[in-house]
Every structure is written in C-alpha cells, then in structure tokens.
Computed example of a mutant assay.
Amino acid sequence: MSHTAHIPSHRKPRRSAPKTALRAGVAGGVLSTIAVAGAAGPAQAEPVTQTIEMPTITEGLSTTVAASAQATEQVAQDLQTQAQQDAAATTAAKAAKKAKAEAVRKAEAKQKAEAAARAKAEAALRASRTQARTTLSATSGSSAGTSASSYSSYASSSSSSSSSSSSSATGSAASVLSFVKAQVGDAYVSGGTGPNSWDCSGLVQAAFRSVGVDLPRVSQAQSTAGTQVSLSNLQPGDILYWGGAGSAYHVAVYVGGGEFVGAQNSSTGVVQRPLSYDPPSGAVRVL
C-alpha cells in the first residue's frame, strides 16, 4: 500500500464549467466598460433639451368664445331691461289704481253736490213762485181772496174762449202743441234738452224749433221773445212765464182749454195741467 493512500488531497476541487464561464463573461463586460470609459477620456455629456409643443387656439375657437361672451352679456342686459320694465309696469298699475279710486271719489262727490244743488234749486224755485204770486196779488191791489176770485174769473173766461181755439189750432201752433203734448211723461232734468228729458226752457225751445222758430235757451230771454199778451186773451201756442218779463224763472206752452204743458220739476216731470194748478205771471206770443 502506498504511503500516500490515506492522505487527503490538498487540491482545490474543479469548478463546474458554467459558473466559470459566467464569471468570465461578467469580468469581460466590466473590463470592456472600463476600457470604453477610458478611451472616451474626460469629456462631459451634453444636456438634452426637449421642446414641448403646446396646442394653440385656432381663429374659429376664438370667434366662438367671443360670441359666447357677447351672448352672455346680451342675456344679462335683457334680464336687466325686463326687470326694469316689470318694475315700471308695477308702478304704473299702482298709480292707475290710485287715480281710478280718486276719480270714483270725485265722481261720487260731484253727484252728491249736483243732487244737493238740484234740491236747493227746486226749493228756491218753489219759494220764488210763492213770492211771485204774492207780488202779483199785491200789484193787483187786491186781497188774497179777491185775487183768487179775480184769477178764477179770468181763467174761466180764458178757458171758455179758447177751448174752441185749441181744437181749431192749425199750422205752426198746432205743430207746437203736438210736440209738447208728445213729451208729457218725460223726465225733468236741469239743463235737459231732450229727447227724453227736459227742463222748462229746453222743452219750449225744442217745440218752437220744430216749426223753424229759433228761441233763446233760457226762460228769462224767452219771456221777452215775442209780443206780450194778456192772460185773458191767450191763444194756443203762446208762451207762459212765471216771474217778471225778462227775469222769468219758469216757462211753459199754453195748449188751449185753460191748460198748459211744461217741464215742471224733477218730481212731476213734463205734465199737462190747468192754469189754476200754477197761475202764470204773463205770456208772450211768437206765432
């Protein structure tokens, strides 16, 4: 037996081929890199500059944006204008409502004033008639009883003498009589000139206008529009007046038979009455 047979070997174990090759490759790569770096020398690498291109706003987009801004501004202006118009309309409506209420109040006040004036005028008219009768009686130089008796006598004679003339009235006088009799029953309204409401002088004026005679509008002037005639010598178509000639406060038309037609007052309207109902002061003849 050899004296070395049991001595362990000090040789390094053989490495496997793949590992050796891998190490050789890595080392070779490192050396190659070092070699390249050495060859390049100390030169420094230049910085890399990259340009980024930003999108630009095209002309069409700019126009669209501008139009949108203009439209927004127009809408805002329209809203402001509408608000102003609404406020103005509200103010106008309030003013109109207030004005209407004021007009109604004034109209009611005017109606009340007119009604009071009519009542006052009617009272004055009644008082004036009473005074005129008293004055007429005093002027005749008779007492109240004698005056009444005298008037009854002339009224009776006038009635008897004119009853036939009433039925025989012709021409313009007959037309005047027909006109006033056709209005009997119409309302009395101060200042009324027809066709369905009258005051005393308005009725007389319209009756004579129907036959082409143009009389003054008021009773004072109508009482002097023709020839003065006696109450005992009346003819149909004569104008009767109450008060003095030129200052009369009432007129009517004598229709014969001792009767007259006149617009008396708001209580009676247009009536046909005997002379004794309201004795006149005088008469004038136009026809």
Rank of each mutant, 00 (worst) to 15 (best):
S160M: 10
S166V: 10
Q272L: 07
S152G: 11
S149H: 09
S164M: 07
D214K: 13
R15I: 01
G192H: 03
G194Q: 05
V270K: 04
A76D: 11
H3T: 06
T193K: 09
T63C: 07
A27C: 13
A169R: 13
C200N: 02
V48T: 06
H3A: 10
S210I: 00
E46T: 14
L136N: 09
P13F: 10
A103S: 14
R118C: 09
T64C: 07
T170C: 14
W242Q: 05
S267F: 04
H250A: 01
E46K: 12
A148W: 07
D78M: 12
A89S: 08
G237M: 06
G282L: 08
R118D: 14
A221V: 00
S230E: 02
G25F: 00
S137M: 15
Q264S: 14
K94F: 11
L240G: 03
Q183F: 01
V251D: 02
A119H: 14
G192W: 02
Y241A: 11
S32N: 03
V211D: 08
A207K: 03
A103Q: 11
I52R: 15
A283M: 01
S143I: 08
E108V: 12
A21Y: 00
S142G: 10
A207N: 03
V189H: 07
Y151A: 04
G25N: 07
A207G: 09
K112G: 11
N196K: 09
R273I: 00
A95H: 06
E122K: 06
D78P: 04
S190D: 13
E114P: 02
A88N: 08
V189D: 11
Y249M: 08
Q205C: 08
R126N: 10
S164D: 06
Q220S: 10
T170R: 15
P274Q: 03
T90C: 01
V251H: 06
S230H: 03
N196C: 04
S266I: 14
K100C: 05
Q131R: 05
R23V: 08
S162A: 12
N233Y: 03
S152P: 01
N196P: 13
A45C: 07
V48R: 12
A245S: 10
G29L: 03
P216F: 01
Q44P: 05
L215W: 15
S175A: 05
L22K: 00
H3G: 15
N196E: 09
T135F: 01
R285L: 01
L240Q: 14
A101Q: 10
A252K: 06
Q44D: 09
Q50P: 07
N233F: 01
Q111R: 15
S210F: 02
V189T: 07
A221Q: 11
T4V: 10
L125W: 11
V218A: 13
D214P: 03
Q220R: 12
V75G: 05
V211Q: 15
L275Q: 08
T268C: 04
F260I: 00
T134W: 02
V229M: 14
I7H: 07
G185D: 02
A127K: 10
V26R: 00
S219G: 03
S266F: 05
A206H: 09
Q111C: 09
A101H: 08
D199V: 02
A93S: 12
G29H: 00
T64P: 03
P216M: 08
A206C: 06
S201F: 01
S190Y: 04
Q111K: 15
S68L: 15
I52S: 09
A87H: 08
G246F: 11
A71K: 10
R126V: 04
I34L: 13
V176H: 02
Q228H: 12
